[in-house]
Design a protein around this nucleic acid. Structure first.
Lengths: 167, 167
DNA sequence: AGCTGATTTGCAAATGGTTTGCGTTGACTT
DNA sequence: AAGTCAACGCAAACCATTTGCAAATCAGCT
């Protein structure tokens, strides 16, 4: 699953957050504001859709940030609640910056052919998790939900018999 | 994420399917009915919850079925629509036998502490995917949905201050 | 500004799940 | 019974991710 970052339909929410605000959050949690850290956060700011570690690494090619450093930082940032991890079922972690304060809960609709991604605001009905938790005696219930399908362009290509991968 | 198969609350749907019926499905699609294949299907029959390749391999220790053979067969079976793959976000594939004919669509509620799994019948509201597809010009929209939380036992253990992992 | 201790980084090696190349075996057709 | 090709076992390759360790860097303090 490859995929670029530039089918932008609107500016990413995240980029509205200045880098300084992000580093401030680091300081709050007494985390050091290092070069690699800032570079990673800056890459995340510019992407509205989930980014893989490899993509971050590639984006930082000029600065030459180590992959291990990226992996370690994503863990740290996730533990701090600054980024959220998404899984599209291909075994590759994808990350998105979480906007401070506001409810950033959302899901994605991914084209299985060309990997185009659409952010989805819709979610499960209100109270769904609560009911589920109650029914099965669970607490702290959360969910992972992602949608997959063929985007407009790809489904057209498929139906007109153009070159395509077997499903 | 470890986890046994034996918190059975009811007999797995799948085991109701005799092995002979499963091999018949192989024959239909002109797939060879080999020893390893039957052994794998038999393991799947006995498990109501998703099983990892490693677990299948372990269950077949006596017969000594190669791991690569298991991986290859799961692919084949998935392509044939005989098994379904689930992802719990830990990068490990889990498989469940799909009952012939009947709608076997379901999700899971997984305890993040002890890995206990509950099968969930509830799903998104009727028409949800259709609406989503229409709104974004997609076709063939499907979804992956899994729930995570603390099971009864584990959340009790946590609140009484017993030994626990930091969240 | 310089010092110091703890965090963080880079590099290289190790993990762990999954895939693949290849020669051999064995299931099914004729 | 013989021939053919899918399927198998084994070993090596892949790829995302993790980890050990010594050197570099950051933050607070003097």
């Amino acid at each position: 699953m490859k995929g670029g970052c530039c089918q932008h339909q609107h500016l990413p929410r995240a980029i509205q957050q200045p880098l300084s605000e992000l580093t401030a959050r680091l300081k709050e949690k007494s985390r050091k504001i290092t070069g690699p850290r800032q570079a990673i956060l800056d890459v995340l700011r510019r992407h509205q859709h989930p980014v893989t570690n490899k993509e971050i690494h590639a984006a930082l090619a000029s600065e030459g940030c180590d992959l291990a450093t990226i992996y370690r930082n994503m863990h740290t940032l996730a533990a701090m609640g600054m980024v959220q991890r998404f899984d599209f079922g291909d075994g590759i972690a994808r990350w998105e910056l979480i906007a401070e304060g506001e409810d950033s809960h959302h899901h994605h609709l991914v084209c299985t052919q060309c990997s185009m991604i659409v952010e989805i605001e819709d979610c499960l009905p209100e109270g769904f998790e609560k009911a589920l938790a109650a029914r099965h005696g669970f607490t702290n219930v959360t969910h992972k939900l992602e949608f997959f399908g063929l985007c407009n362009r790809c489904s057209r290509a498929a139906s007109t018999g153009a070159t395509m991968t077997v499903p």
